[in-house]
Amino acid sequence: MIEIKNLTKRFGQTYALNSLNMKISESGIFGIVGSNGAGKSTLMRLIAGVYQPDNGEAVVDGESVFDNPKAKEKCVFLSDTVFYTAGATLTSMAKTYATHYPNFSFEDFDEMVKRFGLNPSAPLNSFSKGMQRQAMIILALACNCKYTILDETLDGLDPVMRGVVKKRIYEAVMDRSATVIITSHSLRELDDTCDNLAMLHQGRIIYQKDVEDLKTSLIKVQVAFEDEYDIKRFAGIDVMKYTKNGSVANLIVKGEKEAISDTLRAKKPLLLEIVPLSLEEIFTYELRERGYAFEDVADLEDDEDEKHV
């Protein structure tokens, strides 16, 4: 388990992280979302032992990680910018990683190289940016560390390759109970990937929850009645958002899907359709409930001009 205890990191007068506390449990994929400057990369570097905290500590399996080879050996860190030595090939970088990480598996490396379709003997500087990122992911996963820390690693990959990478990450979690921590500035990048999600804003965790719980806690309902109605018709249901076009109302409702469905069916609707919410939509509503504007906290590609309750 990774524990972040009262972690503070300052750059000059600016607090990148301020008294941050969180826990990342073993085995699974932990996503951290935040807009640029939220402190994601700083947090990743602190967890990887790159930075020395100004206050507090990042603890890996009970041991403070900074300047601690035993704890650091359990973590492999991929920075948001690709690193390889001058003139390096994927194979030579694999040898470099293998020197430093005792569990590095050349078998896994070869398998992933084949799967990703990369030439291991070609100089890495001849690769496209996306290919370089794939190469780095291969190297990180081949280290077979207990904790793999990926800082905005999925960002910038094309959808097909993102799928391949995600699949490989799932396998790592399934096969060897690995813990993968991924950050992104865009929630959509992490959609359908993470078991746990945390939202970082101005150096603080403002939201953290199990994704399964998240997805089942909010539902989107399209409903229509024969007669005229308004929001009062939905008394007893925790409606977070209500819009009406003609006779059809769109609701975002908090609660158990089955219970809400039963309650609405009892009101004899002409139309009742329950559709799942995207993670981004869930976050938007959850954050608004906590007084944050989602667009301030994470990047959004679409504007929303719906009427709020």
Partner: peptide, 14 residues
């Protein structure tokens, strides 16, 4: 170099 510095400082050494 920032990325190189991150890489080498993340390696399992003091």
């Amino acid at each position: 170099k920032r990325n190189a510095s991150d890489f080498y400082q993340s390696l399992p050494y003091t």
